[in-house]
Amino acid sequence: MFVLGFPLLLVPFAIYNIVAFLLRGFVWTDPVFQVRMISQAEFSLSWGDLLVIVGLAFLFLEIVKATRMSRRSVVDHLLSLLLFIAMLVEFLLVPETATATFFLLLAIVFVDVIAGFVVSLRTAQRDVSFESVARGSE
């Protein structure tokens, strides 16, 4: 069961804010792990990359939620839009959020807002049916 009426992308946003404001000096580009590939190249995954991956997983769940048609889905879309506006304002005004990681999370939330409205509109279009009326039978 999906949590309706709650924007799941609030989770990576909250994680970012908790880390950025409580762990001063935290560097999002520090590697989580490094792996030597078969090609002998060094693959490195940073904390910021990991948070973006988490955001993408939640984006998938948000798009799946958008396919459900109910009265709660309108509230869910509205909350996603409010989350995007809050993140945009924070990105523009707060120095700790002027990072590529936060910008990518902002882009993910923007895609969620647009995809949610598009999926809802497409689903609503399919629910509309028109009946033809015979003109000569009056």
Rank of each mutant, 00 (worst) to 15 (best):
L82S: 14
I15T: 02
V32T: 01
E90M: 15
L83P: 07
F2I: 07
V3S: 15
I53P: 02
D127C: 09
A107I: 06
L105F: 10
R122W: 10
P31D: 02
L59Y: 06
L61Q: 10
I38Y: 03
L93K: 06
L8H: 09
A57C: 14
F2Y: 13
S39N: 15
F117K: 01
V3F: 14
L104Y: 08
R135S: 10
E96L: 11
M1D: 11
D76Y: 00
S46I: 09
G25R: 02
M87E: 05
E42Y: 03
L59F: 09
F130W: 07
A100R: 11
F110L: 07
M37Q: 06
D112H: 11
L51R: 08
L78I: 11
F117T: 03
R71G: 07
E62K: 03
F58I: 06
A107G: 08
A100M: 12
D76T: 01
L78Y: 07
F130H: 08
V64I: 15
I38D: 07
G55D: 05
V133C: 00
S39D: 15
L10Y: 04
L61G: 04
G25T: 10
L45C: 07
R126W: 13
A66F: 01
A86T: 10
L83K: 04
A57V: 15
P12H: 08
L104N: 13
I114L: 12
G55P: 00
V133S: 04
G25D: 02
L10P: 01
G116K: 04
V119Y: 03
P95R: 13
V27H: 02
F103S: 08
R135A: 04
L82N: 05
R72A: 04
L88G: 14
F33M: 09
T99F: 06
T123Q: 11
I114W: 00
L79I: 13
G48Y: 00
Y16H: 13
I85M: 15
V54Q: 13
F26T: 02
F103P: 07
L104T: 14
V113D: 00
P95M: 12
M69P: 02
V27K: 07
A86V: 12
T99G: 09
W28K: 01
L4E: 09
S137H: 12
